[in-house]
Design a protein around this nucleic acid. Sequence first.
DNA 1: GCCAACGTTGGC
DNA 2: GCCAACGTTGGC
Length: 145
Amino acid sequence: MAHWLVKSEPASWSFARQVEAGAAGTFWNGVRNHVAKQYLMAMQVGEQAFFYHSNEGKAVVGIVEVIKPYYPDHTDESGKFGMVDLRAVRDLPPVSLDRIKREPRLAEMVLVKNSRLSVQPVTDVEWDVVLEMAGESRSEEQAER
DNA sequence: GCCAACGTTGGC
DNA sequence: GCCAACGTTGGC
């Protein structure tokens, strides 16, 4: 399964609020970029994404899961863009952008290469490295499933 | 269809 | 608060 990373400014939507939304989750609206849209459309139910706080915090702070595939974004007047529904899975000990940039195995991460893209793919290797940096071993992660 | 002007994002 | 990078808009 593919892995992703979604970004949000905590001032507008924080991981804490995502957690408060509970198992029912919430829609991830507001994407107005065609590249990000392509990734949203590629997301499958059950796939997981890192939740990244931009501007304030600048760190991966949790994991969310796709619970509803791509559908129209009712807040988009142009009708061109859509969204998915996400629910919080669990929080992570924050992995800061600073540490990500200093990790050679993450040098090709989209977060490093194209910091403005708000929805990004994450490779399996990058996913594991970030989890490792959060202090979780792969075996722990797999034991949880 | 090109490209200058403008707006937005997000790191610093 | 600044500004680089990137997207979008609109005149031609």
